[in-house]
């Protein structure tokens, strides 16, 4: 589903590369934790999947396509296949829960009937039924992240990318979000989750890819967050 072939990335005016010769393959339907300290290249990895940046060298394959060869007008098509969730939720404060989720469909031109059918379904799935009319500032952090997940998932993407989705949440709430992502994964969506949260990683025992200074230092099935340092 996602494959990095000898990918390196050096940002302009940066001293050292953010990624060095990374080779990773993620299969369809997998759940992968991307771990490592801040600045180890996790976010760069995710940005390259979305074609937010171009690798300095190497090839990134997403859904069977070399996205380096994708013309810019096809990039929206690529992003429609990938749902994205962030640590800071990125909800629109002047729109309600339902409107926030509907926005993701409206801006890609989905017809109203489709939006009206799908939005309540996905809100129910993330456990927010009954809160459609609330505004983001009337929700807890965990609930806001559920809205963000609903928005990322509403167009049924084949891949879900989550960049520290539990970074702003307390441990109990984080477990709830984690369960939700696990459910989405079981429905067939490939999930890549960058995280610092060792409890979660240790608990659920999924594949772990660890980055350090832009190098893949560990790629382990059913791994834990880290070795005892």
């Amino acid at each position: 589903m996602i494959r990095f072939d000898n990918v390196s990335k050096t940002y302009k005016r940066a001293h050292s590369p953010a990624l060095r010769d990374v080779n990773v393959e993620i299969e369809r339907g997998e759940f992968v934790f991307l771990v490592g300290p801040s600045g180890s290249g996790k976010s760069t990895f995710l940005r390259l999947c979305l074609k937010e940046d171009k690798p300095t060298s190497g090839t990134v394959w997403v859904a069977g396509k070399d996205i380096g060869k994708l013309p810019s007008w096809r990039v929206p098509q690529l992003r429609r296949q990938i749902g994205t969730v962030f640590q800071d939720f990125r909800l629109l404060p002047n729109k309600t829960v339902a409107q926030n989720v509907a926005f993701a469909l409206e801006v890609i031109g989905k017809p109203r009937s489709h939006v009206n059918r799908v939005v309540p379904e996905v809100l129910e799935m993330v456990g927010l039924d009954g809160k459609e009319g609330r505004f983001p500032d009337q929700l807890s952090g965990g609930e806001q992240q559920r809205v963000a997940i609903a928005r990322a998932f509403v167009n049924k993407p084949t891949i879900l990318i989550a960049d520290e989705p539990t970074g702003n949440l307390d441990p109990t709430t984080s477990v709830g979000i984690m369960k939700l992502l696990d459910r989405i994964n079981r429905m067939g969506t490939t999930v890549v989750m960058a995280t610092h949260d060792s409890h979660i990683v240790d608990q659920v025992r999924k594949r772990v890819v660890e980055l350090a200074d832009g190098i893949v230092v560990r790629d382990q099935e059913r791994g834990v967050y880290g070795y005892a340092y």
Partner: peptide, 9 residues
């Protein structure tokens, strides 16, 4: 957000 969810230019 529009960009992220794949809205066209």
């Amino acid at each position: 957000i529009m960009r992220l969810v794949g809205a066209s230019k």
